[in-house]
Amino acid sequence: MKMLLAKILGTGFGTGYFPFASGTLGSALAVAMYWFIPGFSETTFLLLAALIFFFAGVWASSLLEEPYGQDPSEATIDELVGQWIALLFLPKTLLSISLAFAAFRFFDITKIEPANQLQKLPRGWGVMMDDVMAGIYANLFCHAIYFLLGQLSSQ
């Protein structure tokens, strides 16, 4: 029962079993939840979801490493959390969501330091923390774009 729950949560509700680009599919699920579930995009709810899923992800990813190996591609709960962090404090618009999605995928794939070092943490901590960092990078990038666009439009 414990492993079944770990597989459901840890694979991002099954997105991790997709044969290719499972991380992108996990991020897309996070965006769909943000867009379609009423109240999900509210800052307090999004922060709470990211926090709960972060700790659930550390637990589930640690268990998933037993059958699938270290930092398995099947573990996509980290994409959910990272994508939600990327969306924090942004307006709920198609532009913001598209920008946050693209930025998160870029930073998740490139693993710019310290994300690369965070990935080396043991067990589920490494699985989760590099995506948390990618989400922070993407969020800061999106806010910088909005700031620059605001500055340009006021001139």
Rank of each mutant, 00 (worst) to 15 (best):
M3C: 00
A28D: 01
I112K: 07
I145V: 15
E42Q: 15
I37W: 02
K120F: 12
F55I: 14
L46A: 10
F45V: 15
S41P: 04
A75C: 14
A75D: 09
K2C: 04
L25I: 15
N139D: 09
L29Y: 09
L148R: 00
L118T: 02
Q155L: 13
A75I: 14
T11H: 04
P67L: 04
S22Q: 00
L47I: 07
F55E: 01
N116Q: 05
A144T: 15
F18V: 14
S73I: 08
M133P: 01
L51S: 14
A134C: 02
E66G: 03
Y137M: 05
M128S: 08
P19H: 10
Y137L: 04
K92N: 14
D71S: 03
S41W: 13
P67I: 03
N139I: 08
P38I: 11
F45D: 03
W84L: 09
I112W: 13
S96C: 11
F18C: 07
G150T: 01
W84T: 04
M33D: 02
S153P: 00
L88G: 10
M33H: 00
F40L: 08
G26A: 05
I136R: 00
L5Y: 09
E74S: 12
A21R: 06
A86M: 07
F101L: 13
K120M: 14
T24L: 11
L121I: 10
F45I: 14
K7I: 13
A6H: 07
G10H: 12
G124F: 08
D108W: 01
R105G: 00
L148S: 10
T110I: 15
G126Y: 10
D108L: 01
A50D: 04
D130S: 09
W84G: 07
M129G: 01
H143F: 07
L5N: 02
L4I: 10
T76F: 08
E113N: 10
L95R: 11
F40E: 08
A138G: 06
K111T: 08
R123N: 05
Y34T: 04
Y34N: 07
Q117N: 03
W84V: 05
F101H: 05
L64N: 05
A103Q: 00
A103H: 02
A86R: 06
E42A: 06
D131G: 06
G26W: 10
S153Q: 13
Q119Y: 04
A60C: 11
P72Y: 10
E113S: 13
N116I: 10
L25D: 01
G10V: 11
L4E: 09
I112T: 10
S22C: 00
L148A: 13
T93I: 11
G150W: 02
T11K: 02
F106W: 12
F40Y: 14
